[in-house]
Amino acid sequence: MNVFRILGDVSHLLAMILLLLKIWRSKCCTGISGKSQILFALVFTTRYLDLFTNFVSLYNTVMKVIFLLCAYLTVYMIYGKFRKTFDSENDTFRLEFLLVPITGLSFLENYSFTPLEILWTFSIYLESVAILPQLFMISKTGEAETITTHYLFFLGLYRALYLANWIWRYHTENFYDQIAVVSGVVQTIFYCDFFYLYVTKVLKGKKLSLP
């Protein structure tokens, strides 16, 4: 465990809690893509099946359970408790365009052809694109609430910190997880455009709105 990894995990957790608090306090989930949140719940579900087969550390187990709970609670808030405020008309990204190629790829490129390992690979590939419905929604409506942009910032920061973690682990432990690294780079690239808008607009006190 290095400082980049722990900061990455904290940043990931902070992003999820921020989103939950935003929805809970405003009793409103307008502007949040329910599809992205379903994808994240699917990511954690397929990745953390090893909770039952493999013990890494108490930290690892506790964080996995918290991530799962947060993901499902968020989905429940959007499609259950506050569904009247859910802006489904702007959440129109076609999930099959992501799920079909990613399912195919996880069968083709994996570390071993076993059900758990294919599901793990699927979750890694899926996480790298899971934010696309959210970014698509923002580009469609042309704006995002400031708190939503903070959520996206911490989610992107988590990915960037994991890249630093992998560089660190490569040099100190000779650890190199090719599938995770390639997907992580792809995922981080998706946030670059958003990072630019975040720094040039949101941090200067302006609302994020697209021209």
Binding site: D50, N54, V56, N110, Y111, W120, Y162, D177, I179
Partner: peptide
């Protein structure tokens, strides 16, 4: 590809 199981990251 090198196997990296069990996975120790989140």
């Amino acid at each position: 590809l090198v196997a990296k199981t069990p996975h120790d990251e989140l």
